[in-house]
């Protein structure tokens, strides 16, 4: 196990851990927080293969969502996001992906499937608060109205000019936005600027 102090968030230059608030200020419409180091494992496999589905569900203790855009599990703990007909993300609050990668790799064995640790390929930030949808509407062409989107839903789209995987965590509403790691600074600054008219609380990571 590598020492924690060796690792870096792509936003470490902003020193968010030290400067942020613990929760959203009353007068601010949104809160913005980084969520580095969460486990994100990319899983590819055949949803129509019962053996594969069974192996995954046993290894994770979660149902494998089959419809693109569905999420199973606990958004603050372990969950599975269905990103494509044969593609999922297994995400977990654990900041060391290796045990889960190992158990999933063992679970799929020789099946036609793929398990890849992509925790560092992606960077997550969370946007929450009563105006969160308004901020996202500036960057993203998705319709996030409660009638068409909600908790336990995810979608891949764009955050301004960065590809994004979006999921709604709860009805606050709170959203988790995943962009590729190199887009972290762009996404953070873009959202901070877009939220300015509503007020943005920066939270500790």
């Amino acid at each position: 196990m590598v020492e924690d102090f060796l690792r870096q968030s792509p936003l470490s230059h902003l020193a968010l851990a030290a400067s942020g608030r613990s929760q959203r200020a009353e007068e601010d419409g949104v809160a913005l927080a980084e969520r580095p180091y969460r486990t994100v494992i990319t899983l590819r496999g055949q949803a129509e293969d019962a053996v594969f589905v069974e192996a995954i569900q046993r290894a994770l203790g979660l149902g494998l969502p089959r419809k693109v855009g569905q999420v199973s599990g606990d958004p603050r703990g372990r969950e599975i996001l269905c990103l494509g007909p044969d593609e999922w993300w297994v995400t977990d609050a654990a900041d060391d992906a290796e045990p889960l990668v190992t158990s999933l790799t063992e679970a799929v064995g020789d099946l036609f499937a793929q398990v890849v640790d992509t925790s560092d390929n992606w960077f997550a930030l969370e946007l929450s608060g009563p105006r969160a949808r308004d901020v996202l509407a500036k960057a993203c062409p998705l319709d996030l109205h409660p009638r068409t989107f909600g908790p336990a839903r995810c979608a891949q789209s764009l955050l301004a000019k960065a590809p994004m995987t979006l999921q709604q965590l709860d009805d606050t509403p709170a959203f988790r936005l995943h962009v590729r790691r190199s887009f972290a600074d762009y996404a953070w600054r873009w959202l901070s600027d877009a939220g300015r008219e509503y007020g943005v609380s920066i939270l500790q990571s």
């Binding site: 000019k161 887009f183 873009w190 877009a194």
Partner: peptide, 19 residues
């Protein structure tokens, strides 16, 4: 153009060693 001007004209992607 909206917000996509100046710094936001195009994303600047940076590597882990950028700093």
């Amino acid at each position: 153009a909206g917000r996509d001007v100046d710094d936001f004209l195009d994303p600047e992607r940076t590597t882990p060693m950028h700093a």
